[in-house]
Computed example of a mutant assay.
Amino acid sequence: MKKIWLHSVKLYIQIGLFFYYKKIKLEGIQTIPKNQPVLFLGNHQNALLDPLLIATKSGRICYFLTRAAVFKKPMVSRILNSLNMLPVYRVRDGWSTITKNKSVFSKSVELLHKNNAITIFPEGSHNLLRRVRPLSKGFTRIVLELRDKYPDTNINLIPVGFNYDAPKVMGSSVSINFGKPIASSLYSTLNEADATKQIKHDVFRAMSSLTTQIPEDGYETILKQLTDLNVDFTNPNLVNKCIKSNFKDCQSSPKRNSFVKAFLKPVIYLILCVPVLVWQKLAKPKVEELEFLSTFRFAICITLVPLWLLILFGIAVYGFGITLALIGFVITLLLLLAYNKT
């Protein structure tokens, strides 16, 4: 029953992401083992959308280590648990809660031993910065605990790079780059301290090759130059090459055709007047962190928008009959696709 629930949610989210993004590019998907333990390790730029993209595009049913703060409400906690999310506690949650991580890590070890896939964002927090930030060592504890308990079990550490064209904008593009698996057996002979250091180093380097890496020094200046050049942020190889060449070897991406979008915008806003008003007047003003902007907008898109379209469809059936209502419904979907895909 749980598998049916997970696959149903996955399908629904996939449809939502298809309408939400102009394009979702996948690189390295063929490197992901299908029936072996996998630990996905990605940079964390865009709050809940990062795990949703992994869940729907990796080809694996995943468990997710998620910050414990979102589990506070009982109903929310039940829903998150049903979606294979496990709470991870941080210092800011209180020192007394940190000990709870031991049981979560132990459960993760057992899941990996049974050939499951787990996703962790080892930066420890989300941030819109276009670079990989220093990694916490929490994920290495899982790797090393499994090594000690099940020395014959090899984990595939899969570095993942998320590269958003415009992370706060609906109808933008994103690329998900999956790196080559790093075998946990490579660290089997190292002591705990050396293994922790080496794993973090190797994963950080692999993740950095899969994402745009704007240096911390002069970050805003470099970001502005890249933006002015209209580089394709979904292609980190080209962007990093541009940065390393001191902007001598750069490629600009074509300007988006804004005419079609500008023409369709008032039509879309008129059709979706209620969801748009709810987003702009009620939901958006309450978003305190920019990293959650797209997450909350996407939540509106997959909940309120379908409900509103069904209401409009019902009104159309009552007023014009089922045939015209269906035609209107299909035209509406095509307009939504045209608006976000151009």
Score class of each variant (00 low, 15 high):
R141L: 13
N127H: 15
P37F: 01
E110C: 12
R141W: 10
L41H: 01
V91F: 14
F139G: 02
D93P: 07
I54S: 01
L83H: 03
R141H: 15
G138L: 08
Y89M: 09
F64K: 00
T66G: 05
S108H: 05
V70Y: 07
S77C: 13
L112P: 00
V132H: 02
L128E: 10
R78P: 05
A68T: 11
E110I: 11
K107D: 12
H113A: 14
P51Y: 05
A117C: 13
E145N: 15
G42Y: 01
W95D: 12
D50K: 03
N46M: 09
R60A: 04
A69S: 14
L111T: 04
R78I: 12
L112H: 03
N116S: 14
V38W: 01
G59D: 03
K102Q: 14
F64C: 08
I98W: 10
N46T: 05
S108Y: 01
I79K: 12
V88W: 01
T140A: 08
N81K: 15
N46W: 03
G124I: 07
S96W: 12
L80W: 03
V76Q: 11
F139L: 08
F71Y: 08
V104H: 07
F64L: 10
R133Q: 09
L39I: 12
T56S: 05
R60N: 06
D50R: 01
L128D: 00
V109E: 02
P37C: 07
G94T: 09
H44G: 06
S103L: 13
L80Y: 08
R90G: 07
L111A: 03
V132C: 07
T56G: 03
F105E: 03
I61T: 15
V143D: 01
Y89V: 09
I61V: 14
R90L: 07
H113W: 08
I98R: 11
P51D: 05
E145V: 10
R131A: 02
S136T: 13
A117Y: 02
A55I: 04
L53E: 00
T140D: 01
V88S: 06
K100Y: 12
R92A: 12
N115W: 10
Q45H: 10
L48V: 13
K73S: 14
N46D: 10
Q36I: 05
K114F: 08
L128W: 00
V76N: 11
V143A: 06
P74A: 06
W95R: 13
G42H: 02
R60Q: 13
L48E: 04
R131N: 09
R131Y: 09
R130T: 00
E145T: 14
I142W: 00
A68W: 09
N46G: 07
F121W: 04
K102I: 14
M75K: 11
F121R: 01
V91E: 14
T99A: 13
A68M: 08
S77V: 06
N116Y: 09
L86V: 15
Q45W: 06
